[in-house]
Amino acid sequence: MELRAIHERCSGCGVCKLACALENYREVNPSKALLRIEGRFPAPGDYRVHLCTQCGECAEVCPVEAITLDEDGVYRIDEETCTECGACVDTCPHGVIMVGKASDMPTKCILCGECARACPRGAIQLVETEQREAV
């Protein structure tokens, strides 16, 4: 499975971020969300949804191999191995490896799909990886 953005459907309401924080942290705190919505205003006047595509670039760059691929196709960060160097944060092509205020420990999407379920407009979809081109 993977997350797929259909940018032109996004209205920027941000409910995906709140759902992400609630599902993963049980907190009403969208600053902890593991995806970003970018509003491009005044011009061109649209939104871009930045999602983790489980592309694995973070794992490739990690100097201590703290990020590994699990059997579900999800890259996960092992917090005990991670040295908080920030290389994955700088490398992520979508800017969605997050570092909060409280700690330098990076966090990333684990493909729970709650953002897709929460979106009222189908702007984020959880799809089979082989369907990637079909959506």
Binding site: C13, L18, G45, D46
Partner: peptide, 19 residues
């Protein structure tokens, strides 16, 4: 209209952003 533009957590955005 270019895009619907929603307020926080709104499933029914009144905002129609355009040119």
């Amino acid at each position: 209209k270019i895009t619907d533009k929603g307020c926080y957590c709104c499933p029914t955005p009144c905002g129609k952003y355009g040119k």
